[in-house]
Design a protein around this nucleic acid. Structure first.
Length: 307
DNA sequence: AAGACGAAAGTGGTTGA
DNA sequence: TCAACAACTTTCGTCTT
C-alpha cells in the first residue's frame, strides 16, 4: 500500500506507461488512454480578491477558450428570458431584433460544427482519447470546415479523419480499424478523408512509430512488463537494421511482440497477436521471419526451447 | 485437432512516365 | 491518366506438435 503512493499506476488498467503532456498539464495512460491526472499545473489566479469591486478590477479572463466548442466558447448569447420585462418597449424591440439576428447568424457552418463536435466527443470518449487529442481533432475539423473540405464528404467521416490525424500527431496512435469501429465509418473512407484533409491543410504527420503501439497491444494480450520491454528492444534493433522502413508499423509491432513473448515463455498464438494488432497471421509471419534472419534471434529462441 | 508455414492470387494505394 | 509496383490480405493445402 505504501508503495503505491510513489509508483503511479493507471487506475483503469493498472498500466505503468503514464505519459505527461506538459502543454495541457495532463497525465495520460498510454495503454488505455485514460486521463489519470488533469490540471497538474496550477491554473489558479495569482492575486486575491476581497470583495466584488476588487474582483471586477482584477479579473481579466473569461471561460477558457476551447476548439471543442463550436465558437471556441467565445460566443455571446443575447438576453436571457426574465429580465426583458423590465425593459421599456423600445428596448424590448431592440432585444427581439438582436435575438432574430443571432438566430440568423447561427446557420450553416455553425450548426454543422455543433453537430460535428458532438459526434467527435462521442467517438473520442468511446476510444478514451485524452482531451489534448480531442482538442486537436476539433481544431483540425474546424479548419476543414472553414476551407470547405467537408463538402461532398460525410461529416462523420471527416470527424473520424480529424481524430485519426490528431492521434497520430500526439503519438497515441489508434488503428484505422479502431476508429472505424468507434465511428461506424468504413475504414477506407476514413483513410481517404484523413489523407485528403491532411494534404489540403498542409498538416505534416510523421510516419507512426511502431513502438507507440507496443504498450496497448501488450496489455490487450496480458503480457507482462518484461515481455513488453523486450519487444521494444527488438524493435529498436529492427529499426537499426532498416527492417522497418516502408512496412506497416502495426505489423512490425505485432511481430516484435510475438517474438518477445516466445523468448519470455509467454507464448501467444500468431492468431491472437494478429487479432489485437489488426493484421493477418501472414504478415506477422513475414515480419517474424525477417526479424529472425536479420537479428540472429534464432539461437536465442532455441535456447529458450531447451530450457 | 490446432497451430504454424508458405504459395498463389487478389486488393487498394503510391509512383513515375 | 494509366501501368508498374510494393505491401498486405485472403485463401488454401501441407506440415508439425
Amino acid at each position: 500500500m505504501a508503495q503505491s503512493r510513489f509508483i503511479k499506476k493507471c487506475p483503469e488498467c493498472g498500466g505503468i506507461n503514464l505519459i505527461i503532456n506538459k502543454d495541457r498539464g495532463e497525465m495520460t495512460c498510454k495503454d488505455c488512454g485514460l486521463v489519470v491526472e488533469e490540471k497538474m499545473i496550477d491554473f489558479g489566479q495569482e492575486w486575491r480578491e476581497f470583495d466584488h469591486e476588487q474582483a471586477d478590477k482584477r479579473r481579466r479572463t473569461g471561460a477558457p477558450s476551447s476548439w471543442t466548442k463550436f465558437d471556441k466558447g467565445l460566443g455571446t448569447d443575447i438576453g436571457s428570458r426574465g429580465d426583458i420585462y423590465q425593459l421599456k418597449s423600445k428596448e424590448r424591440n431592440k432585444y427581439f431584433r438582436l435575438k432574430k439576428w443571432q438566430h440568423r447568424i447561427s446557420t450553416a457552418i455553425e450548426r454543422n460544427l455543433k453537430l460535428a463536435l458532438a459526434e467527435l466527443k462521442r467517438v473520442s470518449s468511446f476510444l478514451k482519447l485524452p482531451a489534448s487529442v480531442e482538442e486537436e481533432a476539433a481544431r483540425i475539423y474546424t479548419l476543414a470546415v472553414q476551407r470547405g473540405l467537408v463538402r461532398g464528404r460525410s461529416m462523420e467521416s471527416v470527424v473520424s479523419g480529424a481524430l485519426y490525424a490528431a492521434c497520430r500527431r500526439h503519438e497515441v496512435p489508434r488503428t484505422l480499424d479502431e476508429l472505424s469501429e468507434a465511428s461506424g465509418i468504413d475504414k477506407k473512407e476514413i483513410g481517404r478523408t484523413y489523407r485528403f484533409v491532411t494534404r489540403e491543410l498542409g498538416i505534416r504527420i510523421l510516419p507512426s512509430n511502431p513502438v507507440d503501439y507496443i504498450p496497448r497491444f501488450a496489455s490487450a494480450l496480458k503480457l507482462n512488463a518484461e515481455t513488453q520491454s523486450k519487444a521494444v528492444e527488438i524493435l529498436e534493433q529492427a529499426q537499426k537494421s532498416e527492417l522497418t522502413s516502408g512496412r506497416g508499423p502495426t505489423g512490425i509491432a505485432a511481430a516484435s511482440l510475438y517474438v518477445a513473448a516466445l523468448i519470455n515463455n509467454e507464448k501467444k498464438t500468431q492468431r491472437e497477436v494478429a487479432d489485437v494488432a489488426g493484421v493477418t497471421e501472414v504478415t506477422i509471419r513475414n515480419r517474424y521471419k525477417e526479424l529472425l534472419r536479420e537479428l540472429n534471434l534464432k539461437d536465442v529462441i532455441k535456447k529458450v526451447e531447451e530450457d
